[in-house]
Design a binder for these strands. Structure first.
Lengths: 116, 116
DNA sequence: GTCATGTGTAAGAAAAAGCTGACATATGAA
DNA sequence: TTCATATGTCAGCTTTTTCTTACACATGAC
């Protein structure tokens, strides 16, 4: 698998990327075979710039992979495909990932003051 | 397991709930044993209202469960614990989930017009 | 050249999420 | 009563995310 035990930060990025209906549809569509941006946009029914943004998000998380290719008639086509990620989410697995989080651990910052 | 094959909507909600460092820490902490709100807030190092919001989000997604109990000295304590969720995320599993999404399928709305 | 296709990107509006501070209620103990 | 604990919730600010519109460039076909 591409990433079986991501760090806490990687995991958050992957989960955030997947937690969106449109991006879920993109993954679902690409799971049926690779496709290029403009066609995929028509397929899913969203604007190309919007799809572009979502693909960026998915690629940054390592869930899809894009490759620029030249078609026979010389046009630049960017094909995307899903990577073979495999995430197993349980409480203990999340606890393991959380231990590697680099995000600001509030206990190390200035003390919280709660109204008494 | 609590929810092994959630619908697309449920999955999006669960993923969104998990895609946050603080909520990941909450899950991790609760994975070590149940705890009540005020103590958990001190443990993690965030304000109680903020924790309250995050717990709401997690509980709505079915990832934690809260139960109001009375301590020996009569105080109302809300204890939270993690549910035994088990999510398996692969492209094909996501494709299955995506097929049950109820969110606006753009292809059924008014046609997109892209600059030609 | 013009048209249709493909690509990328930037600006700004609109919507959602995140967070704080303050308020409210309740209990037992001193 | 006053203090310290517990709970819940609301208003409003800040930040992030989402989305559209508009621009840019390139290619082959006509």
């Amino acid at each position: 698998m591409t990433v079986a035990r991501p760090t806490g930060d990687e995991l958050v990025e992957m989960l955030a990327a997947l937690a969106n209906p449109i991006r879920l549809r993109i993954i679902a569509t690409l799971a049926g075979g690779r496709d290029y941006v403009s066609h995929l946009a028509r397929e899913i029914g969203i604007s190309r710039p919007l799809l572009h943004m979502h693909l960026q998000r998915l690629e940054a998380a390592g869930l899809v992979l894009g490759s620029l290719e030249l078609s026979e008639d010389g046009k630049a086509m960017k094909y995307f495909e899903v990577t073979d990620f495999d995430l197993h989410l349980t409480a203990s697995e999340l606890a393991r990932a959380a231990s590697t989080l680099t995000s600001p651990d509030p206990r190390k910052g200035p003390p919280r003051k709660e109204q008494t």
